[in-house]
C-alpha cells in the first residue's frame, strides 16, 4: 500500500435539489445506494456508494411549490436566454466529465469507455436542446390563413409544472433526454430520479445550480418511485407528467391519478426494451409539454371601404 492509498477520501453527502437549494429529506430518511451488479473493476460489485435521501410526499409537495414559483420567470425569459442557460449546463457538465463518467460507470455498471460515451451523449443532448429553445415556436407554431379579416397566430407555450419520472436504467443520458426538453420550452420540472441509480441525477443538480438555471426550474427527488410519483401524479398544481421511468402497472396507476386534473401524460415507450437514448431525439419530447395558444385579432382596413386614402 502506497502513501497515497493511505489517504481516506472525502465522501459526498447527496441531497435533494428543491427550489435551488440542497435540502435533506424532511423525513430524515435515506436509503442505501450501491454500485450496479455489473459494475466492474476493483471497485467491486454491489459496493456501497452513498446514502441517498429518500424523499417523502411532503418533499414532493415542496418541490411542486418551488417549481410553480419558478414557472413565471423561466417561461417569461427569452428563448435566447434559456438557450444560453442550457448551453451553460453543457459547458459545466463538460468540465466535470470525469466525475460523471465515474458515477455513471458505478450506477450503470458500464466500462469507463462506455460510461464516457454516455456522458458525452448527455452533454451533446444539452447542446441539442439549447439550440431548440428559440426555434421550437417557429416549428410548432403557425400563422393561420383564416377566411376573414383576422390576424391569427398559433404559438406554443409551456404547460407549466411537469413531473418527470426519470428512466430507471439510464441514469444520466436518459435523465437528460427527458429533462432537457421539458425545461427547454420554459416548463419547470420535478424529477423523480432513477430509484436505484439516483446519484448522477443528484450530482446533475450541482451542475444545474451553477449553470444559471434559476432555482426551482429543476427539482430533483430521490427515493422510492412508487412512493413519490403518485403524489406528483395526483397533485392538482402539476400540469403534466412524463411516465418514462414507471413500469406498466405504476404507469397505469399514475395515468389514472393524473386524470383528476387532466394532466398531460407522456406514456412510457410501448416497447418493452425501453427507449434507445442514443437515437435521434426528434421533437416529440419538446412538443409533448407545450400548449398551443391561438390569438385572433381583427386586421380591418386602413380606412372605410373604398375611401380615397
Amino acid at each position: 500500500m502506497s502513501q497515497a492509498d493511505a489517504r481516506l477520501s472525502v465522501l459526498k453527502t447527496y441531497k435533494l435539489y428543491v427550489g435551488g437549494k440542497f435540502p435533506r429529506s424532511e423525513s430524515g430518511r435515506v436509503y442505501e445506494v450501491t454500485a450496479a451488479k455489473s459494475a466492474g473493476g476493483a471497485a467491486g460489485r454491489g459496493r456501497w456508494l452513498a446514502n441517498a435521501p429518500r424523499a417523502s410526499r411532503k418533499d414532493a409537495r415542496d418541490a411542486v411549490a418551488a417549481a410553480r414559483k419558478a414557472v413565471a420567470g423561466w417561461s417569461g425569459a427569452t428563448a435566447y436566454n434559456r438557450g444560453q442557460v442550457l448551453y451553460r449546463v453543457a459547458e459545466m457538465l463538460q468540465g466535470r466529465r470525469e466525475q460523471y463518467t465515474a458515477e455513471v460507470a458505478d450506477a450503470e455498471g458500464l466500462s469507463k469507455a462506455k460510461s464516457a460515451a454516455q456522458v458525452d451523449a448527455a452533454i451533446d443532448r444539452w447542446v441539442w436542446y439549447a439550440g431548440w429553445t428559440d426555434k421550437v415556436a417557429q416549428v410548432a407554431g403557425a400563422g393561420n390563413p383564416v377566411a376573414g379579416p383576422y390576424f391569427n397566430l398559433s404559438a406554443p407555450e409551456p404547460t407549466g409544472v411537469v413531473a418527470v419520472v426519470a428512466p430507471q436504467e439510464s441514469a444520466l443520458l436518459g435523465l437528460v433526454s427527458v429533462l432537457a426538453p421539458v425545461i427547454a420550452t420554459g416548463n419547470a420540472a420535478v424529477v423523480v430520479a432513477a430509484e436505484e441509480r439516483p446519484l448522477p441525477a443528484l450530482s446533475l443538480a450541482e451542475v444545474l445550480a451553477t449553470s444559471d438555471v434559476p432555482g426551482g426550474v429543476v427539482n430533483v427527488l430521490s427515493g422510492r418511485t412508487a412512493e413519490i410519483a403518485p403524489t406528483l401524479a395526483a397533485h392538482q398544481d402539476v400540469n403534466a407528467i412524463d411516465l418514462t421511468g414507471a413500469d406498466a402497472e405504476l404507469a397505469r396507476e399514475l395515468e389514472v391519478a393524473a386524470a383528476d386534473n387532466l394532466k398531460r401524460v407522456l406514456r412510457p415507450s410501448a416497447d418493452p426494451g425501453g427507449t434507445d437514448w442514443t437515437a435521434d431525439p426528434g421533437t416529440g419530447r419538446l412538443t409533448a409539454f407545450l400548449e398551443t395558444k391561438t390569438v385572433w385579432h381583427p386586421t380591418g382596413s386602413l380606412g372605410v371601404a373604398g375611401s380615397a386614402y
Binding site: 386602413l302 372605410v304 375611401s307 380615397a308
Partner: peptide, 11 residues
C-alpha cells in the same frame, strides 16, 4: 363626407 374622413374613428 365620411368617404373623405376615411376612418371610422374620424367619423
Amino acid at each position: 363626407e365620411t368617404g373623405e374622413l376615411s376612418t371610422y374613428d374620424n367619423i
